[in-house]
């Protein structure tokens, strides 16, 4: 394979991933508005395009044509870089997710670890955003985000390990293959719950949306960001929601396994179902307070995750060996 070939493949893969990231985020924002509208007895966007489908395109285009304001007292370079860093993991994550047997940009042999590691880059972007803004709301939002994300990281990792233990591999396609007969949500229900809760917290969604808690911190860490910079945070957030749903699908819901329908359809169906549940939660629950959030993690989730891993190790050895 020549260098040119590789380059072409990379460019193609990159284009495909970026297009997917953008379209998916726009679709998810539209979906979110429609879901919220249905939950709230409203119509949601209807005027722009059929069913308001083009509403989010209008929003995106508008944000592109919006003035960029860099406030006087910010840390200029960090401020400029923050949204880009926050957006960085989105395509990297999408690229590593197989959507069916052999379909996907790449299927890394350390896929599970890769996903968890890369998704934390966004946190760096958030911290940079909060700190560089020189705005107290942003600072508080960023501090909350960091504390919350690193805390929930640990039980999340332990929950994933329980799954890895069953599958015996970190490769995502292997994990899906191991669930051909029975999805892990049935074998590892506790791990599923822990992972689901943690990943909602990691993607800063209600009831864990403290970093951008609107009623307290106005807009949280992205308070000072205008136009496209703000849009990049949004893109990153919605991609993260998609990725979290995809991981739940891969690890616990049996991935693309399913009767009758095409594997890709199964995968997408399951993923968007999880996305819907996440949205449903958002439009139903109030928000926790920061200390309650932390206590919940350190006192409930983490011990539970440790016990879960311990018990599954013993049980697994007992049944297999």
């Amino acid at each position: 394979m020549s260098i040119f070939d590789i380059l072409l493949r990379i460019v193609l893969a990159f284009t495909a991933v970026i297009t997917f990231v953008t379209l998916n985020a726009l679709f998810l924002v539209w979906l979110e508005r429609k879901v919220s509208a249905v939950i709230q007895n409203r119509m949601g966007p209807t005027e722009v395009g059929p069913f308001g489908l083009l509403q989010t395109f209008a929003d995106a285009l508008k944000l592109l044509g919006k003035e960029m304001i860099t406030p006087k007292s910010v840390d200029q370079y960090v401020f400029l870089l923050a949204p880009i860093i926050a957006f960085l993991p989105a395509p990297l994550l999408i690229a590593a997710i197989p959507i069916a047997e052999g379909v996907g940009v790449s299927d890394l042999n350390v896929g599970a670890l890769y996903l968890l590691a890369i998704s934390n880059i966004a946190l760096l972007g958030i911290l940079m955003a909060g700190w560089s803004s020189n705005n107290k709301y942003s600072l508080l939002g960023a501090l909350r985000a960091v504390a919350q994300n690193i805390s929930y990281e640990i039980p999340m990792l332990l929950a994933v390990l329980a799954v890895v233990l069953m599958a015996g591999s970190l490769k995502l396609s292997e994990i899906v293959k191991a669930q051909e007969t029975i999805p892990y949500i049935l074998l590892q229900p506790v791990a599923f719950l822990i992972y689901f809760i943690c990943s909602i917290a990691e993607s800063n969604r209600t009831p864990f949306d403290l970093p951008e808690a609107e009623s307290e911190l106005v807009a949280g860490y992205h308070t000072e960001f205008t136009g496209m910079r703000f849009a990049l945070f949004f893109l990153a957030e919605y991609t993260q929601v998609f990725v979290l749903a995809a991981i739940v699908t891969l690890f616990f819901l049996g991935g693309w396994n399913g009767p009758l329908l095409h594997p890709i359809v199964w995968f997408m169906l399951k993923t968007y179902l999880v996305v819907f549940v996440v949205m449903w939660l958002r439009w139903t629950y109030p928000r926790l307070r920061s200390d309650q959030l932390m206590n919940f993690n350190w006192r409930v989730l983490l011990p539970l995750a440790i016990v879960n891993l311990l018990v599954s190790t013993v049980l697994f050895r007992g049944t297999v060996g």
Binding site: R33, M43, G44, T46, E47, A219, F225
Partner: peptide, 15 residues
């Protein structure tokens, strides 16, 4: 007002 795309109330003037 969200029907016309005017329902996204932003708290920060920057957005």
């Amino acid at each position: 007002a969200d029907r016309f795309g005017a329902g996204v109330f932003r708290n920060s003037p920057r957005q």
